[in-house]
Design a protein around this nucleic acid. Structure first.
Lengths: 209, 209
DNA sequence: CTTTTTTCTTGATGGTCGTCAATTTCTGCT
DNA sequence: AGCAGAAATTGACGACCATCAAGAAAAAAG
């Protein structure tokens, strides 16, 4: 079990074996149950790695409404921004299923970075990929019509998994938040696209044309 | 002139002097006139640094509409994502005024990174700050009402420059794109907020209450 | 200073979408 | 299986906003 993080996470798996061993000793492995809170603003700042399972990052705005910012699945990570200057003040991490999650403490990690410069290059590459994803979301959200956002999302996802028949990784509720809309509107848009003949849907399984 | 980049850009100014000298030799300084294209999808991949002036990053969607993704002013940079795996396929950089812009070639830069690991840590920190900014924009765009997006933007900007009286760095047109709306709606929202007494405006100068 | 061009504003209109509420479908649990 | 709770759908309504078009104001050019 103790080796899972290092092998699964892209952030680490390009490192030489002996570096991986060193990291392994710093990582704190923990198990969380579905809907359990992994991290909140009051926690100490950690890098969060999902060794197995899934998690959901969200913030609360002033009205107490959730705002999903990221979906983590096995092998994903989050929180590298908390490893530097800024502390986490408004982000929550919640397990979406029973998960094994590894936490890496800020101070321990910084010490390691100083010792292993290659690590920062790896992290940088990962970070840049994340910027691309966020950039994509910004472009999506800039589209005025929900219909266009949804279609664009589906097409991007189809290209990503490289097939036109797939199962959505998000619940309606979360996909709605991601697209900056509501579950109701999203539902309507699905039937609209189905009527137009651009897709066929059975529950969360999509066939795109 | 040749030293400007190194001193102005946050990315580099924390490096030891002799490192700065080395970078200096790799940087290609060039002058661009207002609305001149600095980089497009067909250019070779470069890191773009604005030594003096301003530039605008945008993409074109399938309908040929512009989508502003970033505003660069003196000391800002962009394009670190093009230094790694992915090539720039749909982003344009355009000078918004007569500018001195420095370009750093991908291959030359990678070679330098290998030689100077501290550089990647610096870049990582900058990148993380950028992620924060994009995250903020995503939160903004998730707000359903334009009014809220505008107010949130103004408040964030006021906090950033640390005063309630400031001049907007963007034209209406660009601010509208940034907030995912149109210049017309934006104009109306300004008069609305002014009627509500939450701000006073003379052209692009704002007083926030 | 005057002219031309760009940017910003204002008006009217129709479509889109968020909200509230009720119903149906799905999922997890015993 | 059957029950309970959550998730997804559907309908009706009203607010919000994008669009088109025309006019005013500012900036740039000469």
């Amino acid at each position: 079990m103790a080796e899972l993080c290092v092998h699964l996470v892209p952030l680490f798996n390009a490192l030489p074996t002996n570096d991986q061993m060193q990291i392994e000793e710093l990582v704190h492995h923990q198990n969380y149950q579905k809907s359990e809170l992994v991290m909140g603003p009051t926690s100490s700042n950690n890098l969060v790695i999902v060794a197995h399972g899934g998690a959901r990052l969200y913030t609360l705005d002033e009205n107490g409404r959730e705002n999903v910012t990221q979906i983590l699945k096995t092998g994903d990570y989050a929180g590298e921004n908390w490893l530097f200057g800024e502390a986490n003040i408004n982000t929550y991490v919640e397990a979406t299923e029973n998960s094994e999650i590894c936490l890496l403490n800020r101070n321990e990690f910084l010490a390691l970075m100083k010792k292993k410069p290659e690590l920062s290059i790896q992290l940088l590459e990962q970070n840049i990929i994340k910027v691309r994803a966020m950039h994509r979301q910004i472009q999506l959200l800039s589209l005025p019509k929900v219909e266009d956002r949804l279609l664009s999302y589906l097409q991007t996802y189809a290209k990503q998994v490289n097939k036109n028949s797939f199962t959505l990784p998000l619940k309606m509720k979360d996909l709605a938040l991601y697209l900056g809309t509501t579950p109701e509107t999203l539902s309507r848009k699905f039937v609209l696209l189905e009527k137009q003949g651009t897709l066929k849907r059975k529950l969360r399984h999509i066939d795109l044309f």
